Computed example of a mutant assay.
Amino acid sequence: MGLKQSITPYLWFDGTAKEAADFYVSVFPNSRIVTVGHNSEDTPGPTGSVLVVLFELDGVRFGAINGGSTFKLSEATSFLIDCATQEEIDFYWEKLGAGGQYQACGWLKDRFGLSWQVNSSDLVEKAHADPAAGARVMKAMMDMVKIDLAGLQRALDGK
């Protein structure tokens, strides 16, 4: 991984940063834990407990910090997983949604509270190239929980 990423998202957890990072690394290909930093006697939190985790998901670097209960993850921030096939959508939907909460339009909140959009940006981009097709695709998507690519394609085609 020789390329340096200029912006790294950091996620705030209340004691589950390492567990969450391990879970995400297990779901996405080409992923790994980069480093784990622990509290010292000079930092808040129990000495030796995990403070921060740097990890990569399919080559994209993230940070996770055990910052306490002050802040919570919310739908205000989400990550889009761009899927090429229905099989990919099904895989990520089941893996990330297990123990979490499924939501409308291909969104889910995982068991740690992180929101994901499991969709095909290619199909959505095609839909937005034509306003009438875009309206049909958006209407079809609003009726879905998990994305059905065949259903969105039918809406795109006007069928």
Rank of each mutant, 00 (worst) to 15 (best):
G2R: 11
G2F: 02
L3M: 13
S6G: 06
I7T: 02
I7W: 11
P9Q: 09
L11M: 02
F13E: 03
D14L: 09
D14V: 13
D14Y: 09
G15F: 03
T16Y: 06
T16L: 04
A17M: 08
A17T: 04
E19F: 01
A21M: 03
A21I: 00
D22A: 11
D22G: 12
Y24Q: 02
V25W: 09
V25H: 01
S26L: 13
S26H: 11
V27H: 06
V27E: 09
F28Q: 14
F28Y: 13
N30E: 05
R32I: 15
R32Y: 13
I33M: 08
T35H: 11
V36S: 04
V36H: 03
G37S: 10
G37P: 00
H38N: 07
H38W: 10
H38M: 12
N39P: 04
S40Y: 11
E41G: 08
T43I: 10
P44E: 05
P44A: 09
G45F: 05
G45K: 05
P46Q: 08
P46N: 09
V50C: 04
L51E: 03
L51D: 00
F55H: 03
F55N: 01
L57M: 10
G59N: 00
V60A: 11
R61W: 13
I65P: 07
I65N: 08
N66Q: 00
G67A: 01
G67Y: 09
S69Y: 08
S69T: 07
T70D: 05
F71V: 15
F71I: 12
F71T: 14
F71L: 09
L73H: 06
S74P: 04
S74D: 06
E75I: 14
E75F: 10
E75Q: 15
A76K: 14
T77F: 15
F79H: 04
L80C: 07
I81V: 15
C83H: 06
A84H: 13
A84N: 10
T85Y: 14
T85S: 15
E87N: 12
I89Y: 01
D90R: 06
Y92R: 00
Y92W: 07
W93L: 00
W93K: 06
E94V: 06
L96A: 07
G97A: 10
G99M: 02
G99K: 08
G100R: 05
Q103M: 04
A104L: 15
C105V: 05
C105I: 07
K109T: 08
K109E: 05
D110E: 02
R111Y: 07
G113S: 08
G113W: 00
G113N: 12
W116L: 02
V118P: 00
V118F: 01
N119W: 07
D122Y: 09
D122P: 09
L123G: 05
V124W: 02
A127S: 13
A127W: 01
H128I: 14
A129N: 12
A129D: 10
D130W: 11
P131R: 12
P131E: 10
P131N: 09
P131G: 15
G134E: 03
G134K: 02
V137I: 04
M142I: 07
D143Y: 08
M144R: 01
M144D: 10
M144W: 03
M144C: 12
V145Q: 03
K146C: 05
K146F: 04
I147L: 03
L149W: 01
A150Q: 08
Q153A: 06
R154Y: 03
R154A: 15
L156A: 12
L156Y: 12
D157V: 04
K159G: 11
K159C: 10
